[in-house]
Design a protein around this nucleic acid. Sequence first.
DNA 1: CTGAAAGCGCTAACAG
DNA 2: CTGTTAGCGCTTTCAG
Lengths: 340, 340
Amino acid sequence: MTYTIKDVAKEANVSIATVSRVINDKDKVKKETREKILRAIEKLNFMPDQAARTMIHKKTKTIGMIVPQLSNEYWGTMAEIVQSVLLEKGYTLIIGTSNSEQGSEFLALNTFLERRVDGLIIGAIYKSDAENYLGVFKDQGIPLISLYPLIPNIPTVCGDNLRSSMDAVEHLIQLGHTKIAYIGSASTGLERELGYRNALMLNNIAVDEKIIVSGRNNFVHYFSEYGYECARQLISEENDFSAIFCSNDLIAIGTIKAFEEHGIDVPKDKAVVGFDDISMARLYRPALTTVKQPLEEIVDAALELLLEQIDNPDKSFTQKKITLPMKLIVRESCGSQKKT
Amino acid sequence: MTYTIKDVAKEANVSIATVSRVINDKDKVKKETREKILRAIEKLNFMPDQAARTMIHKKTKTIGMIVPQLSNEYWGTMAEIVQSVLLEKGYTLIIGTSNSEQGSEFLALNTFLERRVDGLIIGAIYKSDAENYLGVFKDQGIPLISLYPLIPNIPTVCGDNLRSSMDAVEHLIQLGHTKIAYIGSASTGLERELGYRNALMLNNIAVDEKIIVSGRNNFVHYFSEYGYECARQLISEENDFSAIFCSNDLIAIGTIKAFEEHGIDVPKDKAVVGFDDISMARLYRPALTTVKQPLEEIVDAALELLLEQIDNPDKSFTQKKITLPMKLIVRESCGSQKKT
DNA sequence: CTGAAAGCGCTAACAG
DNA sequence: CTGTTAGCGCTTTCAG
């Protein structure tokens, strides 16, 4: 049996208004009355119904988040951090997965609308999908925050992909590599590709389009399988490269796996660098040289910005972009010796 | 601006009751009226408020799920499957993470209660925590379902851990191994340890407690780090074993990583088998021989059982246990040759 | 300090 | 076929 405020009121011999006062710590309530009510609450194991509160406050204390998948360690970690920070702040998180398919987040987004989420966190979303759906949220005055670049007119918090990619590629260059391939993914991949190209240019290395595979349009590109396939393709075309920059760790792992099958050793034969520093980066063999994203900081900043928007519905935040620095972590997958 | 049923009624020049009828497809409504209303809904981008519905139906269409972490690929995958199956069935999932710490799911469980979840899925929980908290859910008539064994008096659906562990260990035995170590984790780990011991016994191999590390009490044991530490310990104690059965893939990966640092090659020097078949099992080097859990089937069965409980509040399901078969996947980490 | 009552958005009788 | 109305559990005036 689950009890209501009425039951508590009856049990304590007071009105429901007074019960409401003590559960919300509002107004003054005589000490004895308060204690009497507290006892009743305790006895009945009473807990206020969120739905009823929502009706009055027009606030659900619920936040939606859309990610490609939860089975991907990167997104799982992100969701976990978001969830626990929100929990502390009294919010509940609902997660929607797009399963890497264009248009498939529609149902989830719809749920967010029906549930009247107070805000929406965009982990990643197709650009075209964003254009199709996100307008509705804006129209309804639901604040949005994006955790990755490239969605226009939405406040954004993310790592400095451009700068870090340059760092990663320059690390390869310093190691003596000049033929550096690239395998990219959608979303953040674009900025990372830009960083890659920029580092090459700044170091007077000609960009060779034949060794660039940039998966710009499909989120399936988050999977290791994608890295695996791309690497196989790169090998089968007998391309000339001694190092490869992958736009995330899972792709890097798929790449190394493909190399292994072709008898190519990492880092002896080819250097590989990943991105994100998921826990598997450290555990993989060889351990991945990669870029560590400051996930906690990103989430903290993003949530702060989101909640600020929720509390100030009139103020405009659309132009706000926060970019956090990331850190290159050198491990085994590039070797340490200069290439000659 | 977000509109209510009243706005739609006004826009379409009908009563709110009729609007309610068309959005719920109940009763007969004249075709023209229906279309007029549909147009108004379309125009205003109206969407019924779940909270209001909840108040009437006493059903939140919300399910809670408690898992140790989302950053762990196994749990992330599980949550993803649950989420998408529930979405299709019109339910919303709220996830609570215990972050592998005893007692830390308290806040999440509390949220579930406040949110009046229609049901609770237990991915994993400390036995003592279960005893402390789950009673409240039962008292309030909230159906529970467990995805792992060992919680008494709760309907459970999970893989046949005992049988599969025996298969895994017997695979090792067939390969010629007799000195087989074990590294275990909490929860499912216990059944897997039992399977390990049973296989040994049935094959007349003496159990050597020195090469058994069973982490029974802490969920930190899900991490690869745990496998890594245990393996180091096993090595440093100069124990004699040629193969090792790990109670999950992450532990197996940590173990292999530790072996590598000590110059021990897998599978040449030692055979390793994992459990769960997370995607990294296939991608790791060497690819892991492991046991594949039928996650989709487990989730399907579990959710069916949970929803059945929700629809039949009186019927008792507490004794219902469903055990699904799992499959040994032979890959590289045990080698293929018989050990001599 | 406390109680009575209105009302949040919606559904479900009950009339018509 | 359609409209009126009570009421879900709670918070919030407004009185007292």
